[in-house]
Design a protein around this nucleic acid. Structure first.
Lengths: 205, 205
DNA sequence: GCTAACAAACAAACTAGTTGGTTGGAAAGG
DNA sequence: CCTTTCCAACCAACTAGTTTGTTTGTTAGC
């Protein structure tokens, strides 16, 4: 086996992704990452410091990847956005798993990559606002947050979905039907933004 | 201190709830559960066998509690259902955390309490179907699954919500506004069930 | 005083992180 | 062109510390 530090690093990172996505920070085993990568544990510590640092690195990379793939494009319809996000999460469920691990394990005040993430969502919010012909603001942000959840929820909690739908979501047809339902649900629900603003406007200004 | 095995057991279970909700199975520490409960570790092993058994017990109890509190009642409007669930999750976020831990840590085929859970969701599905004047079936089940997610998502991923909404959801007013938005979103979105059935009906029969 | 409930110490197993030593291969020197 | 030197990449084995689960002794109710 030829020596190639970059390939080594890539192999370790790939192994760490699989391990952390599967077991989280507390459950992950450095020995297993080493075994999976085909390299020695010492290489991991030499390159990435400690387990936590490696986790942060992997987490950052994976969440950014997910974020970039689920941005609201200029002129994108909310239904199309939900379909796109749904398909992406289905194709890369390990990225969503990392979001769950983060939600659970990152309890303190500190949020990694906070600035970049806020900016990314602000951009999506602006695109969504433009699409709806509304000013960007808390109402549109709430909608964005809801749309993100609409597409992510059924993938993240697929087991729950099977229990609720009587295994309908376990089939490919069930998944497609669910997806198109969510697309329509998002389109209809989005109308509620205007309703709600009107009815609640006295509180705002 | 008077002898009271039941109180001891209750104290241990309460401590275990807090610990497991906070750290999950892998991250939880039996010593911490003992310390929190005010009793000795040996009592835990004497009563509950091992860490895993205690976890399963706590998980079952908490998920059942959550399920029972978020059942669709006969004649309940979908908006009211979402509001009720949202409020419940906000008041007991540790129950939702257990659902996340389960989604992540329970990867195998086996699902604890599968029968009871399916029955519970089937009952909610029936109530929801009756409310909509539709037959129970995969369409209504998909809607139920979506409504559950709509109410749970923003609480489970509150940190993400802060990033997306620019900290709007960190305030009490922001939470209330989000809640009422979700209520309206659910009501409007529910209409899509009829739309989608009609347009996709040729695939069904 | 007998027994169930408790505390504390203990052993075995496991895990993150380290150390000392080995190897491939490039560069320097002849 | 060959060989010696040297260094970074690499690894097996080890260490220090933690964690689960047990055992041994103590206390308090009946």
């Amino acid at each position: 086996m030829p020596r190639d530090p970059e390939a080594t690093q890539a192999a370790i990172l790939a192994a760490a992704r699989a391990e952390f996505a599967a077991y989280g920070l507390a459950g992950a085993r450095v020995d297993r990452i080493a075994a999976r990568s085909g390299y020695n544990k010492e290489r991991i510590y030499a390159r990435f410091g400690d387990k936590e640092s490696l986790y942060q690195r992997v987490l950052s990379e994976m969440l950014e990847e997910m974020r970039l793939a689920t941005v609201v494009e200029e002129g994108e319809d909310v239904g199309d956005y939900v379909r796109k996000s749904f398909d992406f999460h289905r194709s890369r469920p390990e990225l969503l798993r990392m979001l769950l691990w983060e939600a659970l394990e990152c309890t303190g005040e500190f949020v990694p990559d906070e600035q970049e993430r806020r900016r990314c969502y602000a951009r999506s919010g602006a695109a969504l606002a433009a699409q709806l012909g509304r000013p960007a603001g808390p109402e549109v942000a709430r909608l964005l947050f809801t749309l993100i959840g609409l597409a992510a929820w059924p993938i993240a909690f697929s087991t729950l979905g099977r229990l609720v739908t009587g295994d309908d979501t376990a089939t490919e047809e069930g998944q497609m039907a669910l997806r198109e339902f969510l697309v329509e649900f998002a389109r209809h629900g989005t109308e509620s933004i205007n309703e709600f603003i009107t009815s609640g406007s006295r509180q705002d200004l």
